[in-house]
Each structure stands twice: as structure tokens, then as C-alpha cells.
């Protein structure tokens, strides 16, 4: 288990998923309301902690990711918090032509999205509402004549320079004593079952000398200091790999090092099995971060990466839904 001391801490990239319903709603929005207006649209993505040893979770776009025509606004999203759908703010740049889509300046879009994350870290907004740490963006072109949709996700991550080094990473069950593991499982299940915290994806874990574990909000960081208790930085980890943390940890580390000046971080990659905390799938890792020079100055925005890989390389994805959306085809199949 674990990797060689001093190795670069490597993060498993976020994977995207777009539900068919999202494209249906985007099409109707484009035809009925937006027209040729191609200004950025706020969208909501959803994810949940990994819940299967062999399968990562995705960041999903569903039809409710897009606010529909105004009349539906009031009745939309009645279930405020759903533990299987933790919401993440995103931005959609939907172009009018394929040429415009291909010529988008991806690097500057990514940088401006990363700057929002950076500003939220410096202003403290990310401590109040941690979901902004996983902010994402999507570029797309909806070819409504052919019912084809071209798209590409980016999950901006602030790059630590030099990169964080990994000291060790192992299943939480090995890192914790059995009493601590049991107490932490109970605390995590309570956190996930309470409607006020179920979709809060970043948190602090306090383990006292009597082995009892408590979960706290990021804004309670100060009160967690100075008791000699163990402090773990926890996050909902969508990835299932046994030796790597998932992508959301990247911007969390940026927050931890810039805001709290922590240099040695112990983090908890929180994962579940069948919807319950699983300390053998969850990981505890330890990493060293040296705060890059210039990070204290919020005018300096760090480099960012994050365009999604699909099938091992960078590039757009395309989906054709003519079978489900083309009125002609629907008429033929219904006849």
C-alpha cells in the first residue's frame, strides 16, 4: 500500500456524465428562449462520494442542472438536499456555430474560472460554502439540425508549484485504530443523513485522545486547533482508486495551505459502500505542501489545469440523439 516517500501526490481526474434529459432541456431552452444569445449560463452539476469498490462516481448534468423556462423556476428543485446529488456550481458556454465552438479560447476560459475559485479562497467564501471549490465549466455546441451535441468539460484545479509530495496513503481502517474507525464511521453516517450537511462535500474530522471522532464545518477550523487532537481534512471522494485521492482534493489543498498555512496535511478521502461510510474503501493520506511564493498575494492567480480526458486523451465528446429527438424519426418509429 502507499507510494514511495517523496513521490508527487497524484489526483484521479473527475469524470463527467451528461444525462439525456440535459440535452433535451438545453435544446428547448435554445429554441424557445435563448435564440442566438450565447452568453454564459449558470448550471449545476451533481456528484456523490464513490459507493462501489470498482467504480468511480461522475459529475453529472441532469435536466434540472439547467433552470428551465421561468414559469418552472418556482417549482423546480423541491428537494433541497439530496445525499446522492451534492450540487456544484458550473458555467455553460454554448456557442451558436461549430466554428465558434472550435475556436473558443479554452485556456482563458479555464483561467477565468480558476480565478473565481482563487478569489473565493482568499475572500473566505470557500470556507462558508465549500462547493465553490469544485466549480466547473462546460463548452458546448448544440447542432439542432442533426440533434448532435459537442461538448467538453473542465474541472479547474489550481496547480501547486512545487507539487505536493505524498508521505503515505492507505485505507482509513489501517490508519485509524478500530475504535477510532468505528466512531468516525458513525460520525460520517450522521453527517450524511442530516439534511443540513448531507451535501456538504468538504469538512474537518477531529479525533480526540479518547478516540472519539467528530465532524465539523470548515468555518470551525479555529476551534479545532490546539487541543492536541488529530485533525483530518475530509472530502467526498468520487474516485475509487486505492492509492490516489480524487480531484476535489486539489483545490482543497490550495485552500488549506493559503488560508490556514498548514504544511503537513492529513486528509480523508471519504468513500461509501452501498450508501454507508466504508473505512476500508476510504483513504487517509499524508502530504507535504510548501506554500508557493506569491500565493499570499491574491492578485497573483496560480496556473490551472483541468480539461477532461476522454478515453485517455484530451478532446471533445459528441453525442447524437436524433433517434430520441428528431420529430421525423419519432414519427417513423411510432407509425
Amino acid at each position: 500500500m502507499g507510494e514511495e516517500k517523496g513521490a508527487i501526490l497524484q489526483f484521479a481526474p473527475f469524470q463527467s456524465h451528461v444525462d439525456e434529459g440535459f440535452w433535451h432541456r438545453l435544446s428547448s431552452l435554445k429554441l424557445n428562449k435563448l435564440g442566438i444569445d450565447d452568453s454564459p449560463i449558470p448550471i449545476t452539476g451533481y456528484y456523490a462520494p464513490c459507493s462501489h469498490a470498482q467504480l468511480s462516481n461522475h459529475l453529472s448534468l441532469l435536466s434540472e442542472s439547467l433552470l428551465a423556462e421561468s414559469s418552472e423556476l418556482a417549482t423546480l428543485q423541491p428537494s433541497a438536499s439530496n445525499r446522492n446529488k451534492c450540487s456544484v456550481p458550473g458555467t455553460l458556454h454554448n456557442t451558436n456555430t461549430l466554428e465558434a465552438y472550435l475556436n473558443i479560447d479554452k485556456q482563458s476560459l479555464l483561467s477565468s474560472e480558476a480565478k473565481k475559485i482563487w478569489d473565493d479562497i482568499h475572500s473566505g467564501k470557500a470556507v462558508e460554502d465549500s462547493t465553490v471549490l469544485s466549480r466547473f465549466l462546460v463548452i458546448s455546441f448544440a447542432d439542432l439540425k442533426r440533434w448532435s451535441f459537442y461538448y467538453w468539460f473542465a474541472f479547474p484545479a489550481l496547480v501547486l508549484e512545487p507539487a505536493a509530495t505524498l508521505i503515505n496513503i492507505k485505507p482509513a481502517l489501517q490508519w485509524l485504530s478500530s475504535v477510532e474507525a468505528e466512531s468516525l464511521s458513525t460520525a460520517c453516517n450522521e453527517w450524511r443523513n442530516s439534511s443540513s450537511t448531507a451535501d456538504v462535500p468538504f469538512f474537518l474530522v477531529n479525533i480526540a485522545s479518547d478516540s472519539s471522532a467528530r465532524i465539523r464545518h470548515l468555518k470551525d477550523w479555529e476551534t479545532c486547533q490546539g487541543h492536541g487532537d488529530k485533525l483530518l481534512y475530509g472530502f467526498y471522494d468520487p474516485c475509487h482508486f486505492p492509492n490516489n485521492p480524487g480531484w476535489p482534493l486539489r483545490n482543497f489543498l490550495a485552500l488549506i495551505s493559503t488560508r490556514w498555512n498548514v504544511e503537513r496535511v492529513q486528509f480523508l478521502c471519504y468513500r461509501e459502500n452501498r450508501g454507508f461510510a466504508d473505512m476500508s474503501l476510504s483513504l487517509v493520506g499524508e502530504a507535504d505542501i510548501s506554500v508557493p511564493p506569491g500565493w499570499k498575494d491574491n492578485r497573483h492567480v496560480p496556473n490551472a489545469v483541468g480539461w477532461e480526458f476522454s478515453m485517455g486523451k484530451k478532446g471533445s465528446k459528441c453525442v447524437n440523439l436524433s433517434k430520441a429527438m428528431d420529430p421525423l424519426r419519432l414519427a417513423v418509429s411510432a407509425a
Binding site: Q10, P13, W307
Partner: peptide, 18 residues
């Protein structure tokens, strides 16, 4: 399209499972 032209990312901290 080779549309990755203006994406220059070479980051050693990305784990590439695929």
C-alpha cells in the same frame, strides 16, 4: 478537429488511470 490545440496542460500531479 484536433481541438486540443489551445489546451497546453502538462501536469505531473494528474493520475491517468485510463
Amino acid at each position: 478537429f484536433e481541438d486540443s490545440d489551445n489546451v497546453l496542460e502538462n501536469d505531473p500531479a494528474i493520475f491517468q488511470p485510463l
